[in-house]
Simulated assay, not measured.
Amino acid sequence: MLKKYVVFYLLCMGVGYSSFALDIIAEEEKQSLLDIYNSTNGEEWTVSWDIGSHVGNWQGVTLKNGHVVGLNLFNNGLKGTLPQSIGNLTHLVHLNLAFNNLTGQLPTTIVKLENLRVLKLEMNRLKGALPDGIGRLHRLEELSLYNNFISGAIPESVGNIKGLRIFNLSSNNLKGIIPASIGELTQLEVLGLFENGLEGSLPQEMGKLGHLKELVLANNRLGGEIPVEFGQLASLKVLQIQNNSFKSFKGLKLMDAKQFLVFDTDDTTLGPYNEINLERMRTRTADTKFEDDDNNE
């Protein structure tokens, strides 16, 4: 009888311990979430948090093994600045704060989130330069910051993010050149730099982007010649480079006109390229559409 009682007691203790373990979250990470809540007017969010309840019940927060691995507050009425303490959420894999009214500079501590795979901050009012150490986010697969007021140059260190598939900085205030290191992003499928103040020539290293499907560089101050290495971009379906100052488009003649769904340049003499379905070209805009693939996650 005693043996049965001991077994039953241990089982109860095990269940109790498991339940207790599920409620544990690192205090530093909880405080970071509270800092975000307080600095972005959390009480006025579209869906607010009951900060008196367990963190696992907070809207958009995903926990795993006692750590915050996901924060999705897409289109949730955030208004204000992001705190530097966001850098303490070092287990974050997915961060989506897009389509809000975030202001101020992107916290420099964002580069501490080295487990991030998705960083979506598009359609806000963020300003300032991208941190030079952005390349520390080496696991990143998607970096989307379009429609903000990001200024400065594209850091050379972006070339360290080898697995990046989507890189969209369209409709910002970027200056300077497109760094040659961008050619190291050999998994890249979408590159959006539309409507900035970028200048200089396109780096020939871009010819190494064999998986690239969309290249949107329109409305900048880019010049020089289109590199002949563009002929290697066999996967490219969307090319928009109009409203720049290119002096020669000969490099485009090495590409197969049949590969394109959208083809926009300032050169009207490219023969078969001009026969691409014009209606598709008119209805396709730069990748700044008002939607988000993650908004139901």
Rank of each mutant, 00 (worst) to 15 (best):
L222T: 01
S248C: 13
E189S: 08
L233A: 06
K258W: 10
Q259A: 13
I241W: 12
K213M: 10
S157I: 03
V262W: 09
R221T: 12
L188T: 01
E275L: 14
N172K: 08
T186Y: 02
S151Q: 13
L209M: 10
N196L: 06
S201A: 12
L254Y: 05
E189A: 12
R221Y: 13
R221F: 10
F230T: 00
K175T: 13
P179F: 05
S170P: 04
V216S: 06
L193S: 03
G271M: 14
V190D: 04
S171T: 09
Q259P: 08
N274C: 11
R221A: 13
V216H: 12
A180G: 09
L209N: 02
S201G: 05
L174C: 06
A153P: 07
Q232W: 03
V238K: 05
G231F: 04
L270V: 13
F230N: 00
S171W: 07
L188R: 01
E205A: 07
G223M: 12
Q259N: 14
L270R: 09
F149R: 05
L188W: 00
G176P: 05
P227Q: 07
L193P: 00
V158Y: 00
P155H: 07
A257K: 14
L215C: 10
E275P: 05
K250Q: 14
G224I: 02
S170I: 13
G197C: 08
L193C: 03
F230A: 00
E199C: 10
N220V: 12
I241Q: 10
D267M: 05
S157K: 02
G163C: 11
G197P: 06
P227W: 03
E205T: 15
K175N: 12
H211M: 15
L239D: 03
I178E: 00
F260L: 14
I178M: 03
N243K: 14
K247V: 08
S248H: 14
K175H: 12
N173W: 09
L236C: 08
G159P: 01
N244R: 10
N196F: 06
D266R: 09
N277S: 11
L185M: 09
L164K: 02
S245C: 10
Y273N: 04
I161R: 02
K208Y: 06
I178V: 12
V238E: 06
L191G: 02
K162L: 07
N160T: 09
P227E: 04
R165N: 12
G210F: 14
K162R: 15
N173D: 15
N148K: 04
L215F: 06
T269P: 11
L217R: 01
S248E: 14
S235V: 09
I166F: 08
E189I: 11
G224D: 07
L217H: 01
